[in-house]
């Protein structure tokens, strides 16, 4: 019954409004992680930039209703990363390399975030050029990385290197690249792509990917047509920094009642004292507990959404630590502010 409600409710939630991030949190984030050229800096990762970070930056700027910063980040993204022949973004940009793009491959969640932010901003701020760019990226995603592989409609993580033809254990997928909230928005711009089918296969894969004693989805998973899901070869078999955000993406898309969310909630709340953890899939043992505010906010948001638990006092404003947890924090806080305001009382 609950599930049914969530499904019906989902389209209504699809459109997030600008203004859900406070000016003070946003300026603290920008001062720390966005330079004047519009580059979003991953300070825990050699101060490189990537398509995912640019996409997060644009989405957060939209949520903060900051048109100027949105333009700044988009200008950098367009001139420095959106240079591929196929219309998708190069994923990796290194300030210390020349040329700066050190890997021309794609990280498809970055492209989804960029197109999603453009589509939201284009409509809310009435900028047709944003809509046009979002449409082009969405169409390119449909041509390059949204494909039927291993018997399912999947989102390949990159333009090269992950498909059935390129890996013996292919397709290799990253389930945290399914940013469910973006699909209905992009469907408006590129209706020829089966976004609903992509969302459905994402939900199915998440259900099947509960592996190991802890029943958690690994960051990188092999999903062949003729066999069970397994951690992909060549990657650490962990529920790690990638998979952490699955919870957030499901909740932001209005999905609250899946088995995988329950498994994650159990692992964080019962096994690891309210903290997200990096968990080894084969053993089910926690390799590290993540106490940084940004990660703890993920657990607090999940508890809020499922049990109505109030957000702890120390998590009510941004304490910028590093780019990634700070980004997850702002996305979580804006979600709570919009959909679960009672958790902030």
């Amino acid at each position: 019954m609950l599930l049914l409600v969530a499904l019906i409710a989902a389209p209504a939630h699809a459109k997030v409004q600008p203004g859900m991030i406070s000016p003070s949190d946003w300026s603290a984030y920008g001062a720390r992680f966005i330079d004047t050229s519009g580059r979003v800096i991953d300070d825990a990762n050699g101060r490189i930039s990537h398509s995912e970070g640019q996409g997060y930056g644009m989405l957060l700027a939209y949520l903060a209703d900051d048109k100027a910063t949105f333009e700044r980040i988009w200008t950098f993204t367009r001139t420095e990363l959106l240079i591929r022949d196929d219309g998708l973004a190069a994923w990796r940009w290194d300030p210390n390399a020349d040329p700066h793009v050190t890997d021309i491959n794609v990280a498809s969640d970055g492209d989804i975030l960029i197109a999603y932010a453009l589509a939201l901003a284009g409509q809310a701020w009435n900028v047709p050029a944003y809509d046009r760019s979002a449409t082009r990226i969405a169409q390119a995603l449909g041509q390059q990385v949204i494909r039927r592989e291993g018997g399912r409609l999947v989102l390949l993580p990159g333009a090269t290197g992950f498909s059935v033809g390129e890996r013996p254990d292919g397709p290799v997928l990253n389930l945290s690249y399914w940013i469910f909230e973006a699909f209905p928005v992009l469907a408006r711009l590129a209706p020829e792509i089966d976004w609903e089918g992509l969302a459905a296969s994402g939900r199915e894969l998440l259900s099947l990917a509960r592996l190991g004693p802890a029943k958690l989805p690994p960051d990188w998973i092999s999903a062949p047509a003729d066999g069970p899901l397994e951690p992909a070869q060549g990657f650490e078999p962990v529920f790690g920094y990638n998979s952490l955000r699955i919870v957030l993406y499901l909740l932001r898309a209005g999905i609250t009642d899946t088995d995988v969310q329950k498994a994650i909630l159990n692992n964080w709340m019962v096994q690891n004292g309210g903290m997200p953890a990096i968990v080894n899939i084969p053993t089910g043992k926690a390799l590290a507990r993540l106490s940084e505010p940004g990660y703890r906010m993920l657990a607090a948001t999940l508890a809020c959404a499922i049990d109505g638990t109030a957000i702890p006092a120390d998590l009510r404003r941004l304490q910028p630590s590093q780019y990634y947890p700070s980004t997850l924090y702002l996305l979580s806080l804006s979600l709570v502010g919009e959909k679960y305001p009672t958790c902030l009382r």
Partner: peptide
């Protein structure tokens, strides 16, 4: 100016169609 910069970046990455 932006297009020129983008074009040079695309050339550096050998994205000739771009």
């Amino acid at each position: 100016g932006e297009a020129a910069r983008r074009l040079v970046n695309a050339a550096e990455a050998k994205q000739w169609a771009s």
